[in-house]
Simulated assay, not measured.
Amino acid sequence: MDVVWREVWLEVGWGRLAAKTCITGGSQEAGDVRLKIVGLHGWMDNANTYDTLIPLLPAGLEVLVVDFPGHGYSDHLPSGAQHSIINYVIYLNMALHKYGWDKYVLLGHSLGGTVGVYYTALFPECVLALMNLDIIGTLPKDNDVNTWRKNVAVLIKREEQDKEKNPVYSEEKALERLIITRRGIDNITNIDEDAASILLPRSACQVENGYKWRHDPKARNIDQMFTGGESFLFAQASIKCPVLLVLATYGVYFKRWSHILDSRVEVFRDNAKWFDMEEVEGRHHVHLTHPERVAPILTKFIKKVLQCELQPPQSKL
Score class of each variant (00 low, 15 high):
213 W>Y: 04
221 N>C: 14
235 A>F: 01
106 L>Q: 05
275 F>P: 00
33 V>I: 09
71 H>Q: 09
314 Q>W: 13
230 E>K: 14
196 A>C: 03
93 N>Q: 12
256 R>N: 09
222 I>C: 04
77 L>P: 01
69 P>Y: 07
218 K>E: 03
16 R>D: 08
212 K>L: 09
103 K>L: 13
224 Q>L: 15
259 H>V: 09
265 V>S: 12
240 K>M: 10
209 N>E: 13
14 W>I: 05
217 P>R: 01
174 A>I: 00
49 T>F: 06
14 W>M: 05
149 R>P: 11
70 G>E: 01
276 D>E: 13
114 T>E: 11
34 R>D: 11
206 Q>T: 11
125 E>V: 12
78 P>I: 04
157 K>P: 05
118 Y>Q: 04
26 G>D: 06
17 L>D: 00
84 S>F: 02
192 D>L: 00
171 E>N: 05
199 L>R: 00
153 A>Y: 07
98 K>N: 13
205 C>F: 15
196 A>W: 00
24 T>C: 05
101 W>M: 11
284 H>I: 04
315 S>K: 14
123 F>T: 07
66 V>E: 00
299 T>V: 10
55 P>S: 04
53 L>F: 04
231 S>I: 15
251 G>T: 00
179 I>R: 00
87 N>M: 14
80 G>P: 02
73 Y>W: 11
3 V>N: 00
300 K>L: 14
32 D>V: 07
144 D>L: 06
274 W>D: 12
11 E>D: 13
74 S>E: 03
272 A>V: 07
1 M>S: 12
30 A>S: 15
72 G>N: 03
131 M>N: 09
196 A>D: 00
167 P>M: 02
292 E>M: 13
25 G>W: 02
172 E>H: 01
16 R>E: 11
208 E>F: 11
157 K>C: 10
134 D>M: 03
235 A>L: 07
242 P>N: 08
203 S>Y: 02
164 E>P: 06
248 A>S: 08
225 M>C: 14
66 V>I: 10
213 W>P: 00
213 W>N: 02
55 P>K: 02
241 C>L: 11
182 R>P: 01
84 S>T: 06
156 I>K: 13
278 E>F: 12
69 P>D: 09
209 N>I: 08
67 D>I: 05
317 L>M: 14
153 A>E: 10
207 V>K: 06
246 V>M: 05
92 L>Y: 01
243 V>G: 02
93 N>F: 12
74 S>L: 06
142 D>T: 13
266 E>Q: 12
96 L>I: 08
121 A>I: 05
154 V>C: 11
247 L>R: 12
